Amino acid sequence: MASVTLQGNPVSVQGDLPAVGSQAPDFRLTGQDLSDVKLADFAGKKLILNIYPSVDTGTCAASTRQFNERMNDRDDVVVLCVSQDLPFAFARFCGAEGLDNIKTASTFRSSAFLDSYGVKIADGPLAGLCARAVVAIDEQGKVVYNQLVAEIADEPDYEAALSALS
C-alpha cells in the first residue's frame, strides 16, 4: 500500500502503479458517449493516462487543461483523462473549456481499473476515488513512465511523462 498526502494529511492508496517495463494492464472504462474504452483501442499508439479524483476540482481541471494544451503539438500521443466522474461531467467540462486534444473515460461502471492500476484511495475524505497519477504507455503497450503524485493537490510532472514517450 502506497502513501500520499491530501493537503499534508496522510492518505493510503491501495496497490502499486504498473511497473516501468511491464505490460500495461488491460482496462474497460466508459467514454463520454457511454461506449466502452479499452486499452486495445489505443494499440500502436503512445498513451498517457492522466488519472485523478475529479475533474470538478481545481488541480484535476488544471491537469486536464495542461495536457490538452501540450497536445497541440503532439499528434503522436493520446492523453486519456481517467476518474470516477460520470461521462456527462467530462462532456460538460471539456465542452465548456473547449478541450478537444484529450480523451476522457470514467471508472463508474467498473472499479477494476482502480485495482489493476493501483490508484484506489483507501482512506481519508476521498476514499474510493482515484489517486492522482500518470502512466505513460508506448506503442507496444509497455509502461515507460509512472508517477503517483505525492501530494494529491499537486499537479503531475507533465514534462517527465511526455519525455518518456519521445
Score class of each variant (00 low, 15 high):
Lys103Ala: 15
Val134Ala: 13
Asn72Ala: 14
Ile102Gly: 02
Arg70Asn: 13
Asp100Ile: 04
Pro53Trp: 02
Val13Glu: 02
Phe42Ile: 12
Ala96Asp: 04
Asn68Ser: 13
Tyr52Ser: 12
Asp36Asn: 13
Leu17Trp: 07
Asp75Trp: 12
Arg28Ser: 12
Val20Ala: 08
Asp75Gly: 15
Phe113Glu: 05
Ala122Ser: 14
Arg132Asp: 02
Asp75Cys: 14
Ala61Phe: 00
Lys46Met: 09
Met71Asp: 04
Ala62Gly: 00
Cys81Pro: 13
Phe113Trp: 05
Thr107Asn: 10
Met71Cys: 15
Thr64Trp: 01
Ser22Asp: 15
Gly95Pro: 00
Leu99Cys: 08
Asp75Ile: 14
Cys94Ala: 10
Ala91Lys: 15
Gly44Pro: 06
Gly44Lys: 03
Asp26Asn: 14
Ala105Arg: 03
Val82Glu: 06
Arg92Ala: 12
Gly95Arg: 02
Val11Ala: 07
Thr107Pro: 07
Ala133Ser: 15
Glu139Tyr: 13
Arg92Gly: 07
Ala133Met: 10
Ile102His: 01
Ser35Gln: 15
Leu126Ser: 12
Arg92Glu: 10
Ala96Trp: 00
Asp115Lys: 14
Leu17Phe: 09
Lys45Trp: 06
Asp115Ile: 06
Gly44Tyr: 03
Lys120Gln: 14
Ile102Leu: 13
Phe27Met: 11
Asn72Glu: 13
Ala43Glu: 14
Gly118Ala: 01
Ala62Lys: 05
Cys94Ser: 10
